[in-house]
Simulated assay, not measured.
Amino acid sequence: MVTEARKLHVIEQVLKIKNEEKLAAIEDFVSRTLKKQKKEARLESPFQEFVGIWSEEEAAEIENAIAESCETINPDDWK
């Protein structure tokens, strides 16, 4: 219940703000905080944040590099 009282206190303080810049700063902070919480909740693994950062071309280039170097078996390497 202490958390709920704190939330109400913050709301009361925000209602008293007359300065538009301060209100915009608080809105920005709340927005960024909520986005961060959503992002953290979505993360299933430490690498999840990197999903989708490559373009289609970059992904194809990496895939080709892996196929050419990692998926090629050289019979002489076993000797």
Rank of each mutant, 00 (worst) to 15 (best):
residue 28 D to L: 14
residue 33 T to Y: 07
residue 67 A to C: 08
residue 9 H to T: 13
residue 5 A to I: 09
residue 7 K to E: 10
residue 25 A to P: 01
residue 11 I to F: 11
residue 35 K to N: 09
residue 3 T to C: 13
residue 70 C to G: 06
residue 22 K to M: 14
residue 33 T to P: 00
residue 13 Q to N: 05
residue 23 L to T: 09
residue 35 K to M: 13
residue 59 A to W: 03
residue 58 E to H: 05
residue 79 K to Y: 14
residue 47 F to N: 04
residue 76 D to Y: 14
residue 69 S to W: 00
residue 66 I to N: 03
residue 24 A to F: 03
residue 46 P to Q: 03
residue 46 P to S: 00
residue 74 N to M: 03
residue 43 L to C: 04
residue 23 L to G: 02
residue 56 E to Y: 05
residue 8 L to T: 12
residue 9 H to S: 10
residue 5 A to Q: 11
residue 36 K to E: 12
residue 31 S to D: 14
residue 33 T to H: 09
residue 16 K to L: 10
residue 57 E to L: 05
residue 50 F to E: 01
residue 20 E to C: 12
residue 75 P to T: 01
residue 25 A to D: 11
residue 34 L to I: 14
residue 55 S to G: 07
residue 10 V to G: 03
residue 9 H to F: 10
residue 33 T to K: 09
residue 29 F to T: 12
residue 48 Q to C: 08
residue 77 D to M: 01
residue 35 K to S: 14
residue 11 I to N: 07
residue 37 Q to A: 12
residue 7 K to I: 15
residue 40 E to M: 07
residue 1 M to E: 06
residue 51 V to M: 15
residue 6 R to L: 15
residue 29 F to S: 13
residue 12 E to S: 12
residue 1 M to S: 13
residue 9 H to R: 14
residue 56 E to Q: 08
residue 33 T to G: 04
residue 35 K to I: 12
residue 59 A to Y: 05
residue 8 L to S: 07
residue 61 E to H: 01
